[in-house]
Write a protein that binds this DNA or RNA. Structure first.
Lengths: 225, 225
DNA sequence: ACCTGAACACCGTTCAAGT
DNA sequence: ACCTGAACACCGTTCAAGT
């Protein structure tokens, strides 16, 4: 927790991309998305802001690299017995990663078409092949699963940042949302109001998996109207 | 296209929240997410940056309000014959809105728990009730549909911004992504590589609807393993 | 009461100067 | 070759001063 104890914290190890990314993850995990600044980062690395650009193209590249580090760990789950089990395990691993590192959700969305997203898409696609999903249905299925995960992750990240900005924790945030939804016009917002009361009781992790299962069920049922 | 023709462009109409939001939308649509600045906005409104804070709490509030304006229009679709038809129409209206205004996707994700998102959730929930989805399954279904839409929208927004940053259009961007995916290790990324070639041929709108239909199919099929 | 716009406290990024 | 850190061109936001 001590921030600058030593007056001349000369670096022992040389600056490297890995060390920079690692420090960025620590910053993001510790104090949220807003705390990652080229200045705070270079301070933590005991260097100047310019030095970082020797190893990283720009801030966006850095964020994608940090995100990729987390995703690599998350998708490296032990293979299960069935493709369904693998998909569920992958989904839960990603949920847990995005829950532990709330900034990953938004970084993942921002990294459209780049490595972290491709890793995820690849794992999903491979399990769909193992599930013997027809070739012409694989893309739609993979895309649905991927975008669903991205949506949940992005929303999770927004919630976390919103709560942090108000100095509140997740629980206070949910209370505030539930209260706001309860104040909506009953004639116009019956569903939101009915859901508001249950908002607090829900387990996001269970809900997330229920969404995955819903999509997987759709995959097994016959196509066409 | 002329930016400052008159030297003293005195405002005719008084400043109002609506006029500010309207100008913000024009800026966002015209030059992308990065172009919305309190300074550019106040310039366009022929006032100082401070004046805007009399009608809008902060930039985040402004972005949410702009997003809400678009969402209100999009969800106001004529009722169809069946709940399924309504859900598909709602999904397509949202896709078209997020396609025409690429910044809406990220604004929607950022506005966690606030009006634009609630409007969407409410429309989805009402159709699920009409579909006679059991009470205890409504939340999971609504959440899956909502998060899927958010994921696609967010990804769309990221693509658009990425392409704009490179001065490329959507087509160039897709070419670059397809080329990058084709360069991946065939042993490790068979799925991404197989999909890379088709990337250009896909119609995002059709794919989006396919995802919605996949979730709806899952809803109709029996639960449990 | 509302607007104005200079000022504050930041950003990401660059690049001459150092080692 | 690599690091340093001042400097540049911006941000969102505030607030004394004006009307």
């Amino acid at each position: 927790m001590v921030k600058k104890a030593r007056s001349s914290p000369r670096r022992e190890e040389a600056l490297s991309r890995d060390r920079i990314v690692e420090a960025a993850i620590e910053l993001l995990d510790g104090d949220g998305e807003g705390s990652l600044t080229l200045r705070t980062l270079s301070e933590r690395l005991a260097t100047g802001p310019g030095a970082i650009y020797g190893h990283v193209a720009n801030k966006s590249d850095l964020l994608t690299a940090a995100c990729d580090t987390i995703v690599v760990r998350a998708v490296a789950t032990a293979p299960g017995k069935t493709p369904q089990a693998n998909l569920r395990a992958l989904a839960l691993a990603m949920f847990d990663a995005m829950d532990a590192h709330p900034w990953v959700g938004s970084a993942l969305i921002q990294s459209a078409g780049q490595m972290p997203m491709v890793r995820l898409l690849e794992r999903i696609g491979q399990q769909l092949r193992a599930l013997r999903v027809p070739d012409d249905a694989q893309w739609a299925a993979a895309s649905a699963l991927l975008h669903y995960m991205l949506g949940v992750g992005g929303q999770n990240a927004a919630n976390a940042q919103f709560a942090r900005a108000r100095g509140a924790d997740r629980s206070d945030f949910l209370d505030a949302v539930a209260a706001a939804w309860s104040r909506l016009d009953p004639a116009e917002y019956p569903f939101a109001r009915s859901v508001a009361g249950q908002l607090r009781a829900h387990d996001d992790r269970v809900d997330f998996l229920a969404g995955i299962d819903l999509i997987l069920r759709g995959l097994k049922s016959p196509r066409g109207r």
